[in-house]
Computed example of a mutant assay.
Amino acid sequence: MSLKGRKKDTARSMPLEQPPIWPPFKSLIPSNLLSIQEILTNQIVTIPHFWPASLCKTYVSFLSNLPLVTTPGKPKKGDAVRVNDRFQIQDASFATRLWEETGLKDIIMGYVQSEDGLQLDGEARKQLWGGEVVGLNPNIRVYRYSKGQFFDQHYDDSNNVTVRSGQTDLPVRTTWTLLLYLTSPASGCLGGETVFYPDPAIKKTPSPEPVIVNLEVGLALLHRHGAECMLHEGREVVAGEKWVIRSDLCVKR
């Protein structure tokens, strides 16, 4: 399916900068106590309590001091309307830490259970994630949505990037968006839900009800992107601040 003519969110390259010194990952829940929740088959999954509230609070305080840039009020042609503040950095080290030190690798590579209760084998995992997952996109993005800010309906692009594996640079492509929510109504952020709009099963029939993912502190949301991406939006924040860390799953190409 072509993305031509669709409003998009693209992960563009940014100038090389010195990465920040990210806070350590403290008080993480062991990966064997985490689980993936399937929200929409082969499209949307979540990992509740992926980060504890204490770590999210630490990161919000840290991220508040980064040089965030407000997105232009008028987007480029073909881009969706996005009104927020963001920080973007190429940081392979942080991407590796986020993948390996948080239990995310264990969860993704051991992903969950099939309908008959059996763990998915390697081929089933490849089919789900779009290939052999090798890590996260080193293009790390931080988003802050304040009151009145939002991200209009759009599709996320897939991108070809390079990740470091040991002493080797691997050519990879991104297949799933990873969003880590650091705030929620529990921390004073109201609104800002991520809403997905499924296509009707049969053309010219009513569309299914939107799928709404509410903000939860420490929730990781993963959704398929690229040609199979579902139309989605980040609703307007009506109070407080919505903080998100974004990366993407990468598979060999």
Rank of each mutant, 00 (worst) to 15 (best):
A124P: 01
I202C: 02
R82F: 09
E101D: 14
L128H: 07
D79T: 10
I202L: 06
G110P: 00
V161I: 13
G148H: 10
L118I: 15
I202F: 04
L182H: 11
N160G: 03
R144E: 09
G78Q: 10
P171H: 10
W176L: 11
G131M: 05
D116H: 12
E101T: 15
Q127N: 12
S187Y: 08
E123C: 11
G191P: 00
R141Q: 07
P198H: 11
G117T: 07
R164Y: 02
K126L: 02
G191F: 05
E123D: 15
S114L: 12
L120M: 08
F87I: 14
P138F: 08
Q127H: 06
Y143K: 09
I140M: 09
A124Y: 11
Q88C: 14
E193G: 02
Y181F: 11
K126P: 00
D85G: 02
L178E: 05
T175M: 07
G148Q: 11
T168L: 15
S114W: 07
I202E: 07
V163A: 04
V112Q: 07
E193C: 05
F196R: 08
R97A: 14
I107A: 03
F151K: 01
N84H: 08
L170S: 06
T177A: 14
S207N: 06
G130T: 03
T96F: 03
P206L: 10
V112W: 14
I89A: 04
P206H: 11
Y197S: 02
D85V: 08
H154W: 09
P138I: 07
V133M: 00
S146Y: 09
S146Q: 10
T162W: 06
E123T: 15
G188S: 12
P206E: 13
S165L: 09
P185F: 08
E101F: 15
L180E: 04
F94L: 15
T174K: 03
P138W: 06
S165K: 06
G191R: 03
V195H: 02
N160S: 11
K76P: 01
V81Q: 03
